[in-house]
Write a protein that binds this DNA or RNA. Structure first.
Lengths: 334, 334
DNA sequence: GTGAAAGCGCTAACAG
DNA sequence: CTGTTAGCGCTTTCAC
């Protein structure tokens, strides 16, 4: 009747065994004999008993939950990662809970603390800005894997896409369509992921024998507004460009908006490519090409890595070298 | 040194008092005398002791955390609500943790269970599909407040926008601009929020003396694809319309996409209004008008309500009757 | 006011 | 294999 008020003692009494035995069938059934096990199982069945996780955790030191710190940027990229983490965890007895850093002052710090207080067995950190040393200080020796933060100063496990490759492929895609005047809006320059994407852009141009024009690189911040300003800036200065590579889709949206305000058609007059492959890209801005990061693979890898860390089997830092996927072609230079 | 390994006994010894006293200064300092209190505080200061929440919760029955079940992490509407809930909670000693239902099979059920297992003191449920009775069965007598689910069969607290008004205002906005042939893509017809928005649409038309044309109402599902299909369907059947009211922004995106495929300009030829005011609305589809739900107010109300429920002061079911905000005007009928 | 003692519900040795 | 005995770290009577 009353919800969580049935305890292990109740069912022990009901099954006429000791509560240690009940605990055993709960955690390691193979340790218990047929007869007693049946009795316990029966009692369990008719009482819908829910073990008290607090007590269990206090006694065992394990909470069977892993904390995920999200930035909730609301991009499908992060959502996809989270989905595959959840999928990976579902095979196990571990359950995810989330801490959202986005709205707190010291965003991730607060979220990580809260999660740690809840005695999570491990933490998966998605994106964010916290520095490696700060994170280290916070978590001590508890298992942590960092996702989507390439190049962070962090001696633990990192699962990340190859952002250099992402930038390279995006630019390469444009070049393959005959473009040579390719403008670029960077992401947040303080963010290694962003820097690497830009490096990939530079390298792709160089490899194609195209000179990098610094004036065609606009320093953005991963937000849409930067895309708008970038276009305004280029246009105002009379720069020519037939294609734009935006560091992410949100920025690309901004670029597209500014372009359409000037009655410049995409992709007929200017080709546009972004990174992330948000749903909105397909729906709202079909002429926008986007590159998808291998989110699912990264999520899986993250789940696997944190479980290994918890289990104690060491797991090295690594960068996920997945293939990038280009969703749609841009138009050829004409 | 070692992270969480300092216990209340340690600092009791350090301060030369009993651990009961330490517990008191931790929870109710006024119960302890000056001298002893100072000693404890001093010990506390030099050891950076972190009380073990599991133990505390096991002993007290309270976890000082409230669980938030989210559905659509990533849409600005829900994000705004979450932000203001967090803000409201920050004034207190309660901390939020999140359960994301989106990717689970029985989405919310699993999330709610996980949260309940973690012994949260209360639950805030955002959106979703779970039925009132099912939810009731799940949570028993624990405090729950449901947000953004108008008309749910639920005797507890509900914080919701007035979806009828939302639909009414959106339609009214179009009518005010001189439109009379106003098409409508509904949300998920199984969802009360959606039904009410559609009712608002009907009422606004009636009030303006405009007859409702059933063929101009397309049954959608809150997803973008429905918007595309709606337009195709109307166009194929040769229906005339100078404006479209989409049940939410995502649907509006779809409408806009389909329209632009047919070279129908928005808003010059067809005006378009949605609900939610997603960031992308402003960025990608500027000619798209959107109505914002009073998310911040709803979040605040939710935080307040759950705290009241936990504290025991009763709190009645209520619908938030905030003003809707229209971000941008549509173009006049010409 | 403050300390001693008794648990919260469960797991984990330890004997048998 | 199974029951007994201790706790996990904290709160909370209950006397003093």
């Amino acid at each position: 009747m009353k919800e969580g008020r049935i305890t292990i003692d109740d069912i022990a009494r009901l099954a006429k065994v000791s509560k240690a035995t009940v605990s055993r069938v709960l955690n390691n059934p193979s340790l218990v004999n047929g007869a007693k096990k049946e009795a316990v199982l029966a009692a369990l069945g008719q009482t819908k008993f829910q073990p008290n996780l607090m007590a269990r955790s206090l006694a065992s030191g394990q909470s069977m939950t892993i904390g995920i710190v999200t930035q909730n940027i609301g991009t499908s990229f992060y959502d996809d990662i989270i989905r595959s983490i959840i999928l990976g965890l579902r095979q196990t007895n571990y359950k995810p809970i989330f801490g959202d850093g986005l709205f707190e002052q010291n965003a991730e710090v607060a979220a990580v603390k809260t999660l740690l207080d809840r005695k999570v067995d491990g933490i998966i950190l998605l994106g964010g800005d916290i520095s490696g040393p700060d994170l280290q200080k916070l978590v001590g020796d508890r298992p942590v894997v960092v996702v989507a933060r390439e190049g962070m100063q962090w001696q633990g496990t990192i699962i990340s896409a190859d952002n250099f490759q992402l930038g390279y492929e995006a630019t390469r895609c444009l070049i393959n369509h005959g473009h040579t005047e390719i403008a670029h809006v960077t992401g947040n320059p303080l963010h290694q992921d962003s820097v690497r994407r830009t490096n990939g852009y530079r390298q792709a141009l160089s490899d194609a024998g195209i000179e990098v024009d610094p004036e065609l690189i606009y320093q953005g911040n991963f937000y849409g507004q930067a895309g708008v300003l970038a276009v305004e800036s280029w246009l105002m200065r009379g720069k020519n460009f037939s294609a734009v590579f935006a560091a992410n889709d949100l920025t690309a949206f901004g670029v597209r908006l500014a372009l359409s305000r000037r009655n410049i058609r995409v992709p007929d007059e200017v080709s546009l490519i972004g990174i992330d492959d948000q749903v909105e890209s397909a729906l709202v801005a079909p002429p926008l090409t986007s590159i998808r990061q291998p989110a699912a693979e990264m999520g899986q890898a993250a789940a696997k890595a944190i479980l290994e860390l918890i289990a104690g089997s060491s797991s090295e830092s690594r960068v996920y070298q997945g293939k990038v996927i280009i969703r749609e072609s841009v138009s050829a230079k004409r």
